[in-house]
Amino acid sequence: MINYIWFAMIFIGIILGLVNGQGDIISKGIVASAGDTVQLVLGLAGLMCLWCGIMKIAERSGLTEKIALALRPILKILFKEGAKDEKVMGAVVMNLTANMMGLSNAATPFGIKAMEEMQRINREKDKASNDMALFLVMNAACIQFVPTTVLSIRAALNSQNPGIIIIPAIISTATAAFVGIIACKILQKYF
């Protein structure tokens, strides 16, 4: 559906530009934006490689495992059924840890594995369990200690201080995570 909306917006914009005699401006804009896009993508690729390398160092140094150990007691309180199964908790912890470090690509396989493991222990196979709903909320609104994608975009666009968003990102993502968890726990009582 969103593809149709984007296509309609672009198509209508081009038609209106041509009707108003702005065809040369449109073609120059398309060429300039295509070049800028390639330049941005190349800059982002390099920066994402840098951040992925830093995160790999954090993983190999044991930092992610230390974060995982700190998370386990908290997650065992939050997840009622999943806390009893070590496979569920392992996948959940690894997903949330990867998300916290800004590695959403690395977090995705762990998220899928966590949902598969939660489905395995789910009593009602045709309905998502409370733990599954809570995990989805925590995955979507995970606290980001290192927002690598936003940092990379800001650096690629020549921001004077790309890292200035780290503290606001931690505050906003922590707020979203806490509100999401609280809302999920309240709704679990009624549904």
Rank of each mutant, 00 (worst) to 15 (best):
E117R: 12
R60M: 15
M101H: 10
D126V: 01
A45G: 08
G62C: 08
L71I: 06
N130T: 03
L134S: 03
K127I: 07
V88N: 01
A58S: 12
I54G: 04
F110E: 10
A106S: 14
L40S: 10
V93A: 11
A98V: 00
T108K: 08
M115I: 10
I67K: 00
I57G: 07
E65Y: 12
R123P: 02
D85G: 00
T108G: 00
L47N: 04
D85K: 12
E81P: 04
E124N: 14
N130L: 01
C52E: 15
K84V: 11
L103V: 07
L103Y: 12
L47T: 01
L44C: 05
G43P: 07
V92A: 09
L69Y: 11
R120V: 02
V93G: 07
F135E: 03
L69R: 14
V88C: 11
W51Q: 00
F79A: 05
L75W: 10
S104N: 14
V137F: 05
N99I: 03
K87W: 02
N105C: 08
A107M: 02
K56I: 00
L42A: 10
L71D: 02
G111T: 06
T97M: 03
G53P: 03
G62E: 09
L103F: 13
K113W: 03
A68N: 06
D85H: 13
A58V: 09
L50R: 01
M101T: 13
W51G: 03
M132F: 03
V41D: 00
N122V: 04
I54F: 08
V137P: 01
E124M: 10
T97I: 00
K113G: 02
G82W: 05
L69D: 14
P73T: 02
P109E: 06
P109F: 06
A133Y: 09
T64N: 13
V137S: 07
S129E: 09
K127Q: 08
G90S: 10
R60H: 15
I121R: 02
I57F: 14
V88K: 04
I112W: 05
E117Q: 13
K66Q: 12
Q119T: 13
A128H: 05
A68R: 12
M115Y: 00
L50M: 09
S61Y: 10
S104D: 11
V92F: 07
G90D: 13
V41F: 03
L40R: 11
E65V: 13
G102V: 01
I57N: 08
A114N: 07
T64Y: 09
F110Y: 15
V92E: 08
P109W: 06
N99S: 14
I112A: 12
A107Q: 02
L42D: 02
M55L: 14
I77F: 09
K56E: 10
L42I: 13
T64G: 09
R123F: 08
G111W: 04
D126G: 04
L44S: 02
L103H: 07
L50F: 14
